[in-house]
């Protein structure tokens, strides 16, 4: 990646650009949250922007975009289980046994 001075300068410029983008997106997210829109809309927008920021950090700063296939396979596996861990308990709340009136 950093083979010579020229490509090194290009890489560093890229990092600085990403830094500026990250700062801007963060400010934008703060602004959106202050608009006090409908909560579901706020959640969708804020989380989407956060996810995009995170993907910039992961793909560019952590060089995930040019990483080995094996690492991708580890991460895909992790994401699948992460999603299960995050959402299955919720499913339990939204699908309680019929006849019960309280949320456990």
């Amino acid at each position: 990646m950093i083979a010579d001075q020229n490509s090194a300068q290009k890489e560093i410029r890229k990092y600085l650009l990403i830094f500026v983008v990250l700062l801007s997106l963060t400010l934008m997210n703060v602004f959106v949250s202050r608009l006090h829109l409908n909560i579901s809309l706020t959640i969708i927008i804020v989380l989407s922007v956060a996810a995009f920021e995170a993907s910039l950090v992961a793909c560019q700063l952590m060089h995930l975009i040019s990483e080995e296939k094996l690492i991708y396979s580890f991460l895909v596996l992790t994401v699948i289980f992460f999603v299960f861990a995050l959402f299955i308990p919720l499913w339990g709340i939204f699908n309680p046994i019929t006849g019960s009136t309280h949320v456990p």
Partner: peptide
């Protein structure tokens, strides 16, 4: 190994989970 991550709530059948889950 993969499946072992998505069976856990069979330990929780009596906790008031509905039919879908």
């Amino acid at each position: 190994g993969f499946m072992s991550f998505i069976v856990w709530a069979h330990h929780m059948f009596l906790t008031g989970m509905g039919t879908a889950i």
